[in-house]
Every structure is written in structure tokens, then in C-alpha cells.
């Protein structure tokens, strides 16, 4: 938040232990997969095999299938690859090198000019 707000309420973090992509899928996700499977049947090209959705048991497996099917129907929804910031030490070194480099360039330019 850039702006300062008068009334700010802290929201607790979710514990890391909450994550479990090996959790068995609920009836909701099971039906979501079934609905996508109907679409998959329609989109099937000769030589292609239908996904065996009976093998999808966990949330991880479900998410992989949902990603595949959603990407077919809505490629615009793909996450753009994120630029990962380098570690702070590397950033400091890069910054230092950049400013050093800038100085050199200036002086070189100066030398060139003087030539």
C-alpha cells in the first residue's frame, strides 16, 4: 500500500501446513472435471485419446487437467511468466557495477571528446 490509511486491519497468514495438493477431490471438483470431459469429447481430434478422468484422484491431478482444458478454451487466461527478482546481494552488486560502469562510460566519452 503506497497511501497511508487511518483504519488498517491486519489479516493473519494462513499456515503453510494448510496446503495439501494430495487431498482427495471433493464432489464439486469431480463434477467440474466431468463437465470439462464433455467438452474434451467434442474437441477430440482423430488419433487423440480422451483423458481417463477416473484416474484423477487428487487436487494436484485435477488442477493439471483443468489447466490443460482451460488453456484450450481460454488461452488468454494463462499467467504471464513472472520476472523473478535476483537475490538482494546480486542486486546490490549489479547496481554497484552499473554505477561504476556509468562512471567509466562518462570518462571514456570525455576522453573520446578530448581526442
Amino acid at each position: 500500500m503506497e497511501k497511508k490509511y487511518k483504519l488498517v486491519a491486519k489479516v493473519p497468514k494462513t499456515p503453510k501446513s494448510a496446503y495439501d495438493h494430495g487431498r482427495f477431490i471433493s464432489s464439486l471438483i469431480e463434477h467440474q472435471i466431468k463437465h470439462f470431459h464433455e467438452i474434451e469429447k467434442l474437441l477430440l481430434k482423430p488419433g487423440q485419446e480422451l483423458t481417463d478422468i477416473t484416474k484423477i484422484k487428487t487436487e494436484l491431478q485435477a488442477s493439471e487437467y483443468l489447466k490443460k482444458m482451460t488453456a484450450l478454451l481460454h488461452p488468454q487466461g494463462a499467467e504471464k511468466p513472472r520476472r523473478v527478482a535476483p537475490p538482494r546481494k546480486t542486486r546490490k552488486r549489479a547496481k554497484a557495477a552499473k554505477s561504476k560502469g556509468k562512471g567509466k562510460t562518462k570518462s571514456r566519452r570525455g576522453k573520446r571528446k578530448s581526442r
Binding site: 493439471e64 482444458m69 482451460t70 481460454h74
Partner: peptide
Amino acid sequence: YYYDQQSSTMEIVNLLKNQPRIFGS
């Protein structure tokens, strides 16, 4: 707006298939 492609939407057969332009992440 669905969360992301791995989570996707519950509106599949009628909307995502036929009206993908109304979706976003």
C-alpha cells in the same frame, strides 16, 4: 474472473466453451 487456469471456472459447458471473451483470470 476465475482464479487461474489450474482452478478454472464452474461455468464450463455454456459459458467458457461458447463465450470465452467474457472470462478473465
